[in-house]
Design a protein around this nucleic acid. Structure first.
Lengths: 214, 214
DNA sequence: GTCTATATAGCGATAGAC
DNA sequence: GTCTATCGCTATATAGAC
């Protein structure tokens, strides 16, 4: 007997596949933006890659800039490694800094992160406030977390630092260093594992020579 | 007596105003590329700004990419401060590093240099070999010069450095630092003079604490 | 060698049928 | 809510007159 009174394979007749298609669009946009840049990824390509029509993209996200903004937002939320924000005072300082450095350097070295960096500081974004927004939810949060960690080690007498936020910025700047600059300019493929590890050790060693309590 | 045998107001009848117009095009291109980016500056605008026709631009430089390449080349040649490449061993080390830092930071902080950096690491340039070329004639040359200077001070017993090229890269990385990153992302106008000076001193002090011979 | 006018193509965004 | 077809605009690069 097919007399089911309300089988309702679609619970919400109004907008059945919204979320599904919305996520497909977001993923397609993330892929195409990171591989071809902002101008290089056309709304036609994004719609085709997501398997929907172009107007569906527009009805979900308004326009291209709003779609890109959503991509950046979701990207930042899933990128920051939790290990950066734990104190772990039981670990020796050098090991703790090496751990932070390893996670941070891996994060900024991923092809998607490099591509995102390139887009966000490109001339196309100069008039937008999105880069400044990204700075607050990305680099600034990391820097604050490192400042808190340094503060603890200073209080414990392990470090002698005058200006802690500046030292945190210096540490992160050194971690990026020449390898990250070369990646931005496309001068090299990713570092080999041994080279990256050598870079991390050299960074931590230099930082500790400058700031370790004598 | 007007009997000059070859007055020749035009020495080369074949192409009378070539160099003049060529330089006007180059200057117009430099201005528009640095203010509007690579894609943002159209060949129409460049031709109009230079006071010539668009076809003249094409006949002089071939296509847009070649024109941009010429702009980068001429820009690099006139940007590098000579003071970076002098040894000046009679100056105290800290003053010498501060001088280098001041010149280097001023160079990379100029609106044109920031705009150039943005363009050269933009996704639009990812497929080109121009960024790699720029790296060799720009950052790499500076880094080599700093390496030579550090080598002298190590030989003089003032510094204790294991890996000199890496230390040179660290010094330049620190000089760029957070301020330069913020400029790239458009998070701030130029630093005030006092802030920049404080940044330079903090950089040199940290570098010396890490590498000064004890 | 230089100019005006145009060919060709791609973009973001939208109107109307279902 | 979703799709096909198209508008309006701007770009690079080129053909033909002088």
């Amino acid at each position: 007997m097919p007399a089911e009174d309300a089988p309702a394979p679609r619970p919400a007749p109004g907008r059945p596949k919204d979320l599904e298609k919305g996520n497909a669009i977001l993923e397609a946009a993330r892929r195409l933006f990171t591989t071809h840049g902002y101008d290089g990824a056309s709304m036609d390509q994004i719609a085709a890659e997501a398997g929907v029509s172009k107007l569906t993209v527009y009805s979900h996200y308004g326009d291209k800039e709003a779609l890109f903004s959503e991509v950046v937002k979701s990207f930042c939320e899933q990128q920051l490694p939790a290990s950066l924000f734990e104190a772990l005072p039981e670990l020796p300082l050098r090991e703790r800094l090496l751990g932070i450095g390893r996670a941070f350097f891996a994060m900024i070295s991923s092809p998607e992160a490099v591509a995102g960096h390139r887009i966000l500081c490109s001339p196309r974004m100069a008039a937008s406030h999105l880069p400044a927004l990204f700075w607050d939810v990305g680099p600034q949060r990391v820097q604050d977390a490192v400042s808190r960690l340094l503060r603890q080690r200073v209080d414990a007498g392990e470090l002698a630092i005058d200006d802690i936020p500046r030292a945190a910025a210096q540490f992160l700047t050194l971690l990026k260093g020449e390898p990250h600059a070369r990646m931005l300019f496309g001068c090299c493929a990713n570092l080999k594992h041994a080279e990256a590890e050598r870079h991390l050790e050299a960074t931590v060693d230099m930082f500790l020579r400058a700031y370790e309590a004598r």
